Simulated assay, not measured.
Amino acid sequence: MTAIDTRTAPPLDTAPVDGAADVHCAGVSKTFAGGTAALRGVDLHCPSGAITVLLGPSGCGKTTLLRCIAGLETPTSGGIRIGDRDVTQTDPRRRQVAMVFQNYGLYPNKTAYGNIEYPLGMARVPKRERRDRVTHIAELLRIDHLLDRKPAQLSGGQRQRVGIGRALVREPAVLLMDEPLSSLDAELRVSMRTEIRTLQRKLRTTMVYVTHDQTEALALADQLVVLRDGRIEHSGGPEDVYGAPATTFVAGFLGAMNLLDAQPLGLPPGTLGIRPEDLLLGEAPGALTLRGPVVDADLIGTERIVHYRCGRETVRIRLRASDPVPEQITAHAPTDRIHRFDPEGNRIGKQP
């Protein structure tokens, strides 16, 4: 983020907001110098008081979209509204948004208290109100006993809480989070995402959250938005996106669905999708049977993902880790658990 000259810049808008606000992106496109198109006509509504998670691989446009909402990037075309205000050309300081970055962005020479208080000081909020707001946020984040420590004296999780506190103390209409947990270890990520969701539920803040982690996305999202090459592939509730993916890309990216060419199985051109957990050992009358030799197996805790060859395809099935891995697998897919996609990769029908 570009450094701000506090001698000449207008103060941050940190006045308390009367409730959260929704976010509307209408036809938002962003093309960088050199012709790289990061966003291509994105239409998105982020509901007030909910967590919208932007999910996708590197380079899909999710961080660019977040930065456009924040005002750190200006769309090449299209518009952005926060609540009832068109903020497409509005200075970032006037949007009543706050952003939490991946690298915390804390001032090393300031205490946790000083870091959280900083935006309020820039906004010339009275000292007593600053103290009250910092204390309140610190108590919510359970870091009130750490306020006199500097960042070097804090753990990664504690530093991230300070970063979140510095954003929340402004009481923004929208809180933007750009992969805030990616630098934490796996165990801490689990506990921090639980804390973030609990805090959001308590404050009812509108949150737009960027991640490339599927588990994190499914755990946090009220609305899940999967992006690919600057476009939205699927948007909806996490159960709907996982349970009935709109395209083969979403099906493969979210949950690693088996995607099989339908024609060698005696079906019309297209793709069949079957999740590893929906394959059952053995045969069943009228069910699609997939059999072949085992080629690999991955242990994941109490379960094992077994890879086996079925014709030219590699199929994955989820088995109990305590069961021996056979040399050959015969498994069937119940008809109501098979997903069908047309030759262009678009879903046929709404349900499996």
Rank of each mutant, 00 (worst) to 15 (best):
T2H: 06
R7E: 13
T8K: 09
T8D: 03
A26Q: 14
G27Q: 07
T36M: 09
G49H: 07
A50F: 00
G61W: 00
R67N: 14
E73M: 01
G78H: 01
R81Q: 11
D86G: 03
D91S: 13
V100Y: 03
Q102R: 03
Q102N: 03
Y107D: 09
P108S: 07
A112P: 00
G114M: 00
M122I: 15
R124T: 01
P126H: 03
P126T: 01
K127G: 01
K127C: 01
D132G: 05
L140R: 12
L141I: 07
R142I: 04
I143W: 03
I143M: 06
L147Y: 08
P151M: 06
Q153E: 13
S155W: 02
R161H: 08
R161Q: 02
A167K: 01
P172V: 09
A173I: 11
E179S: 10
P180K: 13
D185G: 11
L188I: 12
S191I: 05
M192K: 02
M207I: 15
E216T: 13
L218A: 12
A219G: 09
L220P: 13
L227E: 08
R228W: 02
D229Q: 13
D229H: 15
P238M: 14
A244G: 07
F249K: 06
G252V: 12
G252W: 07
L254Q: 03
M257N: 05
L260T: 12
Q263M: 12
G266C: 07
T271M: 00
L279Q: 05
P285T: 06
T289A: 01
R291P: 00
R291I: 00
G292A: 10
G292T: 06
P293M: 10
R304Q: 05
H332E: 03
R340D: 07
R340A: 09
D342Y: 12
I348A: 00
